[in-house]
Simulated scan of single mutants.
Amino acid sequence: MSGLRTFVRHNGLSLGFGGLFLLSLAGQALSGMADFNDRQLAHGVDPVGLGSYLTSSSFAVDVAENWQSEYLQFFLYVFATVWLVQRGSPESKPLSRIGTESDEDQLLGRHVQPGSPKWAKAGGWRTAVFARSLALVMGGIFLLSWLAQSVAGVAAYNAEQLSDFGDPVSWPEYLVSSDFWNRTLQNWQSEFLAIGSMAVLSVYLRQRGSPESKPVGAPHGVTDESG
């Protein structure tokens, strides 16, 4: 039992947010199905069950459009903070460390430690890939989610078009449509606002005990210091 408690304590952040994710996804599925069926009835079409809704393009596009924007946020933040700084923000590096930093700073080459990851010690292409693996994976998930959004989106859009006696469109036509870019940009703008707000507000505001905040008594101008 102590082993389970230790595991939960050591992984509380991922377990907590994983649970919140599953609960919110279930809530989205139920509320989304209710909204979808309301629209079905308004068009004189029979409502669908939960299983049918979960495999529908309507549910898939709603999920994918949120996932792609979230992973875009993380990808851009991971990549942009290599080169861009915000003086006084714990979310930023100080001016002296702009760029990819030295091998000594990054514990590479002769500076590796006994516990360093194997690919950090390997050198060559493996270290080069590992050194960029976080941004590569975040960017890859973003692109896959965006692709999924476009595929599910064209199916959902064409279903609405047919129910309204309109003409369906092809996938390339949908990619340049206002529906696709409205879905995309309404998520992107909120993510960009959230990133910028966090970077600036954390200069002047504090949350005691949070690694996303500076120590409560730290001067506003102190950069790259977490509490």
Rank of each mutant, 00 (worst) to 15 (best):
F36N: 12
G51R: 08
M33H: 12
G49M: 00
L25A: 13
F21P: 02
Q68M: 15
V78D: 13
L72P: 11
Y53N: 11
S24E: 13
S31V: 00
G32D: 00
A42H: 07
N37E: 09
L30T: 03
V45I: 12
R39M: 09
M33D: 07
S56L: 06
V45K: 15
L76I: 11
L54I: 02
E70A: 15
F17N: 13
V45D: 14
L76R: 00
M33W: 00
A80Q: 09
V48N: 03
G27Q: 09
V48I: 06
Q40R: 13
F36K: 02
V78W: 07
A26W: 10
V61C: 12
G18M: 05
D46W: 04
S56E: 00
N37S: 07
G32F: 03
S52R: 15
T81Q: 04
F59S: 04
L54S: 07
Q68T: 14
A42C: 06
L50F: 15
R39V: 12
Q68V: 06
G27T: 10
N66M: 08
F21M: 01
V61S: 03
Q73C: 08
F75E: 05
T81I: 04
F59W: 05
Y77M: 12
Y77L: 00
D38A: 15
S31A: 09
P47R: 09
A42E: 12
V63Y: 12
E65R: 09
F74C: 03
P47W: 08
